[in-house]
């Protein structure tokens, strides 16, 4: 299925959870936040929350800034 991950179109397998997506993309989860369709998904829900076709996913982190 198709998702939009950080503003880029991406093809992933159906029914994948956030945790599986993060593992698949080799994302270190310590300092990130995940938003799906502008709704924040708490860390505790990564294992259960399944992605759906067309979901807009934002994975954000802290970078240098003033």
């Amino acid at each position: 299925m198709n998702i939009i991950l950080n503003n880029q179109s991406d093809e992933i397998r159906d029914g994948i959870t956030i945790r599986e997506l993060l593992d698949h993309k080799k994302i270190h989860t310590k300092y990130i936040a995940v938003e799906i369709n502008q709704k924040i998904i708490p860390r505790s829900k990564y294992n259960q929350h399944e992605l759906k076709e067309g979901d807009k996913i934002e994975i954000i982190t802290a970078i240098g800034g003033g």
């Binding site: 991950l5 950080n6 503003n7 880029q8 993309k25 080799k26 994302i27 270190h28 310590k30 300092y31 990130i32 934002e58 994975i59 954000i60 982190t61 802290a62 970078i63 240098g64 800034g65 003033g66």
Partner: peptide, 20 residues
């Protein structure tokens, strides 16, 4: 210290250090 909130650079080396 202040930090900015931005999209994660997906595809970067998992073990490369992050600001925090």
């Amino acid at each position: 210290v202040t930090v900015a909130i931005r999209r994660l650079n997906i595809g970067q080396d998992k073990d490369s250090p992050s600001l925090l």
